[in-house]
Design a protein around this nucleic acid. Structure first.
Lengths: 335, 335
DNA sequence: CCTCGTTTGTACAACGTTGTAGGCAACGTT
DNA sequence: AACGTTGCCTACAACGTTGTACAAACGAGG
């Protein structure tokens, strides 16, 4: 019930290669021959065997997108854009979840050499530059700042200035005790480090003191971590009048903790996030946030990969910056 | 820099097949031969070419999961579980977004015959049983009620009784004017039809009238649709004292619209959803909902696929039911 | 020392596709 | 009439892997 070129060829009374030529749109096929072949293809419902084609061509037409977790909305939204952008190049996207575990990330990064995929777009959490070193020039594009100093092409946003801008927004609204949620140990969380730096820059520029007690770490960046960190900030020390959460899910968790503590947002405490996920447009209150241009990030990543695949694989790694802007909503309405 | 069995064989001084045997763990290989081969493999950093292996074996080790949209949290969470369950069978999961468009769904369903994937787990929105008819026995598992009467194996939950249970919960709390959000034209939205039926059953059993004006349609099941439907219910006719939204994102949208209208949840209006997505555990207020066992759904779907792959492809289609339970949270606290 | 069975390894073909080389008409040009 | 050119098509080999068939080496038992 499953047919091959050979079956079509026999039915149409031509050679296997002629059928192949028809399938691939080769021009020098007589119209009547082409018609006969196409008829046979339709009758047998022939579809090419991609494994065989890939074996022959050395390319699979599949790229992978590896992210820590799919049910983190930011990555889900990003995945959507990557799939769309890849479709323009005729690529199928294999989506991989690493769970942010170094071992799993290593497997994915080396799975690339299994010839199952032509290239990889990778958003690593735990991987180091050394892990990537041994992966001979297989095309890969990194997202985010986790791995720097160019073992591979990379797409980033300007985390420092974005964090600085949203913090300045809080300062402009008159907030003075501005907390930050989401800091991490320096050997992981490169994004955390940069966002913290932008936050500190803004404070310094405004003549505000940087207060260690206002900076809450978060092991992961989920809602639960945001809620826990917020509760911690509320019980210890003086209450902040604004909070900069290093991503939106942290912020949604913080909103929840503030609600439970009987505090109003933004009247008692203003809250901002980072990522502009869909949830933040419908939360109560709606969430002010930094909006990275996810579509652009996806497009640039796919383009870098395409260039690498068709072009010089040994060329020096490139780094592209995607734009961002602020989305100001209810959680920072002027009190 | 990329090596084949042949390269390893030459280096180890054995035949190509012996290397293949070592790679595949064939037993009758002398320890010293095995060691020599393994050394050569390590030195060359050899990795098998999966395209070739698949061509030879007729299997690719890849299954696809096709969902309408990845950034709908329910599907993202489900995807996570499917990836995990598939890993137990050594399968990689190719995730596909159909956007709920019939054309795209058809492409995916027939892409299955491209030999790129061994099987498909499919959550169709627009596809009909006829679309699936021509797909000769390629293993496929359907999720949800969209396509019924068994052209393929299927995993469902008991939508009618789940909807009835959560509606009964609202009735028990003393609510009498219970609205429903999410109804759809009957030729699409089979889940909507079943949930509406459960809702109506519960009303009838309690002696409450079924009021057309309290049933709001929603073209899609996103937050924005929920908010719009809720606003509609509030402006026309008598205000409901409870709302059953046919999924959680609709409910989150409804919460938002109620908030904007100055109504308190659950004091003025109680709200329940369906799906138990992560967001509902942190929304303000937290959301009472029907919690389908997503892990079980994923596991059953993968198992059905595995049975179909290894077993009788012509066997009659099976339908498995996954359990669900109620998660009662703040949005229905006794007023 | 021969026989027999097991262990260990090899050679070959095949999976389904496409690139290369080439053959055979039909055509226009010298 | 001989020639090159072009259009159309075919035969063959190759992509890298594994199943099948079989050969060589080995050990045990008589």
């Amino acid at each position: 019930m499953r047919h091959r070129l050979k079956d079509v060829a026999e039915r149409a009374g031509v050679s296997v290669k002629t059928v192949s030529n028809v399938v691939n749109g080769y021009v020098h096929v007589r119209p009547d021959t082409r018609a006969r072949v196409e008829e046979a293809i339709a009758e047998l419902n022939y579809r090419p065997n991609l494994s065989a084609r890939h074996l022959r061509k050395g390319r699979t037409g599949v790229i992978a997108l590896a992210v820590p977790e799919l049910d983190i909305p930011y990555f889900a939204e990003l995945a959507r854009y990557v799939v769309t952008a890849a479709a323009d190049y005729g690529w199928t996207v294999l989506i991989d979840q690493t769970g942010g575990r170094r071992e799993q990330e290593r497997v994915v990064a080396s799975g690339i050499t299994d010839h199952l995929i032509d290239g990889l777009i990778f958003s690593p959490l735990a991987l180091t530059a050394e892990d990537l070193a041994g992966l001979d020039g297989t095309p890969m594009v990194l997202l985010g700042e986790r791995v720097d100093h160019g073992p591979a092409d990379r797409v980033v946003i300007d985390n420092v200035s974005a964090a600085r801008q949203i913090t300045e927004h809080l300062i402009q609204l008159g907030h003075r005790r501005i907390a930050a949620i989401g800091s991490q140990r320096t050997d992981e969380g490169a994004s955390a480090r940069l966002r913290l730096a932008g936050y500190a820059e803004a404070l310094r520029a405004a003549g505000l003191a940087y207060d260690e007690n206002l900076v809450a770490p978060a092991p992961a960046w989920h809602r639960a971590d945001g809620a826990a960190a917020m509760r911690g900030l509320l019980t210890t020390g003086v209450r902040p009048d604004a909070v900069f959460c290093f991503n939106d899910t942290l912020a949604l968790g913080a909103l929840r903790a503030l609600h439970e503590a009987g505090l109003r947002v933004p009247e008692d405490v203003a809250v901002v996030g980072f990522d502009d996920i869909e949830d933040g447009r419908f939360s109560i209150p709606t969430l002010s946030t930094v909006a990275p241009d996810k579509e652009q990030i996806a497009r640039l990543a796919v383009e870098l990969l395409a260039n690498r695949l068709d072009g010089d694989r040994a060329a020096p790694a490139r780094e592209l910056k995607a734009p961002h802007h602020l989305e100001l909503r209810e959680s920072t309405r002027n009190p």
